[in-house]
Every structure is written in structure tokens, then in C-alpha cells.
């Protein structure tokens, strides 16, 4: 079996850790070899952050290289564009349409590109955009944006909805389980 490559990208502090924990937990439970690679430290302070999640029969490398990602789950629009070169030819981008301006844009040294997702689509890239922040707020907290996106990602996988929900119960702190399950379902589309 071929290794599946998932990238979770966003802005430091957006909470990609829980998303990768959920994926890692589910894939191990399904009997796969798994590697999850993060970078800690300085880049977490509002910088561009990347987590690689890889699963398959035997996974060697901890990282995903250019042109290899089956899925890019982006917590922010600009970050989806930044990491587009990582995408495999028939890979898919799942993106929260929220905009967070990086410092060069804030201080007027650069511009936040308009219609960047449309531009990617025009180049044949599969882009699945959703307002995950609003759905997360509907579920109860902006912090559940990550799980809304996991819900949307889940639609592309063969695992059952129940398997995902059970994994959420197993990795999320008990008092946040219900909110996160709701967030997952909003992303999943039900």
C-alpha cells in the first residue's frame, strides 16, 4: 500500500496540534504505520507552520516533499497558496477561507493577494473552501476550527463517520468532546 501524505498548514497558534493528534490516533488504530512531524519553537509565534501526517504500510520519511501531498488542510487562505507546490498532481486542498494578515501586509510592505483560491482553481487545483471559523463558532468556540476542517477532510476518506467520532472521544478532553463532535459534523456536512 502506498503512503498517504497529509499536510496541515496554518498560522502559529491556530491549533494544528489537536488535528494531527486526531489523525495519528485514528490511523494507528486502523493498524497503519504512521509518522507525524511538527516544528516547535520560534515559528509557532504567529509564523507559517506546517505539520506532516503520513500513513501507510511502512512509513520512512518524517516529511512530505514538493509534489507529494495528497491533502493539504489549510487553516488560512494565504497558507494554502504558500504550500500549493507541495500538492500532488491530483491532490486536494481543504481550506478555511479566513484571512489572517501577515506582518508584511499589516505594515504595508506587501499586499494580501485577492482571489488567490480562484487563481489556484484556474490552474486546475482541487480547492474545497469553507468558512470553518463560522462553523466553529456555531459549534461553540473559534478553537474548534481545526475539528471543523477535520470533518471536511473526513469526507474524502474511507473510514466511517463513527470511527472519526470515536477517535475524537479518545483524544479530546472530556469537557470539550460534545462541542468538537458538533464541530466535526458541521464540517462533515450534516
Amino acid at each position: 500500500m502506498k503512503t498517504t501524505n497529509i499536510m496541515i498548514v496554518g498560522v502559529g497558534g491556530q491549533g494544528s496540534l489537536l488535528a494531527s493528534k486526531l489523525l495519528g490516533h485514528l490511523f494507528v488504530k486502523k493498524g497503519y504505520d504512521v509518522k507525524v512531524s511538527e516544528v516547535h519553537g520560534m515559528s509557532q509565534r504567529g509564523g507559517s507552520v506546517v505539520t506532516y501526517v503520513r500513513y501507510g504500510e511502512k512509513v520512512y520519511s518524517p516529511v512530505v516533499s514538493e509534489g507529494e501531498a495528497d491533502y493539504i488542510v489549510s487553516f488560512e487562505k494565504l497558507e494554502a497558496a504558500r504550500h500549493a507546490p507541495m500538492l500532488k498532481k491530483d491532490g486536494k486542498i481543504i481550506v478555511n477561507t479566513q484571512e489572517i494578515s501577515p506582518m508584511p501586509v499589516i505594515i504595508g510592505a506587501a499586499e494580501y493577494p485577492t482571489d488567490i483560491l480562484e487563481e489556484l482553481k484556474s490552474k486546475g487545483v482541487y480547492v474545497d473552501g469553507l468558512d470553518a471559523l463560522s462553523l466553529a463558532l456555531e459549534a461553540g468556540s473559534a478553537k474548534a476550527t481545526n475539528i471543523v476542517l477535520m470533518g471536511r477532510l473526513a469526507g474524502y476518506f474511507e473510514f466511517t463517520k463513527e470511527e472519526w467520532l470515536t477517535a475524537i472521544e479518545e483524544v479530546v478532553a472530556p469537557k470539550f468532546v460534545e462541542m468538537n463532535k458538533k464541530a466535526f459534523m458541521l464540517g462533515y456536512g450534516q
Binding site: A84, A110, E111, L120
Partner: peptide, 17 residues
Amino acid sequence: PETVSADSPVPVRPPVM
């Protein structure tokens, strides 16, 4: 590898306080 990228410049996102 074969890759695809946006033509519009993508501003860098350095870490900040």
C-alpha cells in the same frame, strides 16, 4: 517533481511577537 503554484506573490509570514 511536477508542481503547481500561484502566480500572485505570496507574502512571507515571519514569526511575530
